[in-house]
Computed example of a mutant assay.
Amino acid sequence: MATDIQQLHHITAIVGNPNEVLTFYRDILGLRLVKKTLNYDDPYTYHLYFGNYDADPGTIITFFPWENKKMGELGDGQVATTIYAIPENSIDFWAKRLTDKGVDFVRGSRFDQETLLIKDFHNLNIELVEKNWGKANTYAVDDITPETAIQGFAGAIIYSHRPANTLHFFEDVLNWPVVDEDAVYTRLQAPGDHKEWIDIRKTPGTFGTMAIGTVHHIAFQVDDEDTLVYWLDIAQKEGYKASDIKNRDYFKSLYFRERGGLLIELATKAPGFTWNESLENLGTELFYPAKHQAIIEVVKKKLTPLDF
């Protein structure tokens, strides 16, 4: 049993109108809608998954569209920015594409790497950075090609209420080494092939409010359920209050909150997104957890129709 945590699995955020999510992530950023399902705890809310063409772990961003809800506040205990890897020499393409689509962005840099910082339609921070992710994304939208398409996660910026504790979690529990730091951030790097970055802000602020425009949790990949059991024991020994192991249909997972306030999920890489839908047809059919079967016809009538 391989117990190391090598990479990100997915990031889940709370948003508003689901069709605005489709417009931004599918039609502008060029990500593929790979699964259309319902929230396990709230069947009247979609759970939408976007990623690369193959729906690989490490490319998946998921959303709970909470319509007619208030906006959240960014703060400690949250992923502040989701960072995407774009191919080398593609940042000017993305600057032009965003301009043509009417999306504002800010050019910046961190650790001597040029960045494009965007806010989506629900105030989530999305950043693009050139990074060799190792696998091209073949999903095509407009003039996006494998030479320019978003490949997967380059990492995330974390706001922590106790930065030293969050650093301990990544460095000493996950064994992700520190590779750089400046006056604002400490950067750690995943040991896996994609070498995602976690940039932890050094100065605490105030806790954020979880609602529209905030990240709900960040998930890291483990091999299988036996590995989840192994990490559940570690989480408990570290004093983190952990959930039991949950079946999420496309992976099994457990949750705990590290001491800086960040909600962590560990998720298995199997069975993946193609066990109930072919690769070619991903994202075309509405699936739902079995526990919603008794009310599914009522739920369908109340869901916002999605634009296709």
Rank of each mutant, 00 (worst) to 15 (best):
I126Q: 10
P65H: 09
L48G: 07
W66A: 09
G155W: 03
L98F: 14
Y240C: 10
F153D: 00
Y46P: 06
I11T: 12
E20P: 03
E127G: 03
A154Y: 11
I198V: 15
G239R: 08
K35G: 07
E127K: 07
Q6D: 10
D41L: 08
Y288E: 10
D193M: 14
Q293Y: 11
D100R: 11
P191W: 10
D172T: 07
I264C: 06
L8V: 01
K302T: 11
G208P: 05
F169R: 02
E297G: 02
I91W: 05
T115S: 09
T81W: 09
H161C: 11
F63I: 07
A136R: 13
M210N: 13
P305C: 06
E130I: 02
L124I: 08
G30M: 06
V34G: 13
T45A: 11
G283E: 06
P43A: 02
K291Q: 13
D226E: 15
G58K: 01
N52F: 09
T268H: 01
F273K: 05
L167V: 13
W66I: 07
T99R: 12
P65I: 03
L117M: 13
A80E: 15
I11Y: 00
S253Y: 01
N137M: 07
P191H: 04
Y288P: 03
K246M: 14
L31R: 04
V179H: 11
E127A: 08
R32D: 08
G283Q: 00
E238C: 05
K202P: 09
R107I: 12
Y44E: 13
L279Y: 10
Q221W: 00
F93G: 08
I118M: 03
D120Q: 05
E130V: 06
K241C: 03
